[in-house]
Amino acid sequence: MEDTLGVVIPDPKTDYHGHLNYGKIYVWLLILFAVSLTSAFLFSHVAAIATVFVIAIIQAGLIARNFMHLKFEPVLIWIIAIAAVFCLVMFLYGMYIDITPVTREIAK
């Protein structure tokens, strides 16, 4: 469908292509969750933490892309999502050196 602006009006039925297998994604989420729970026993401390956070990012991506249908959204929504992440990365980058390496004796 198009209106006079030439804007394609979204229709939910065609919009989501209707055939996503949500059950499969749910199973994947559970598997990843199980891996992150068991990783603490399998790997060393640092490796386990790294695994857990990588898995968290993958899980968040799965939910955002499939359950929230981000993968069908136009570029505008991607820009909003990326801008939020960019702001947080900048924030972490600017703050890290003022908080973490400063021992409490100096901070006092």
Partner: peptide, 11 residues
């Protein structure tokens, strides 16, 4: 004194 940091608020 409690492990916090006023610089955090400034940021």
């Amino acid at each position: 004194a409690r492990g916090g940091d006023p610089i955090l608020f400034q940021h």
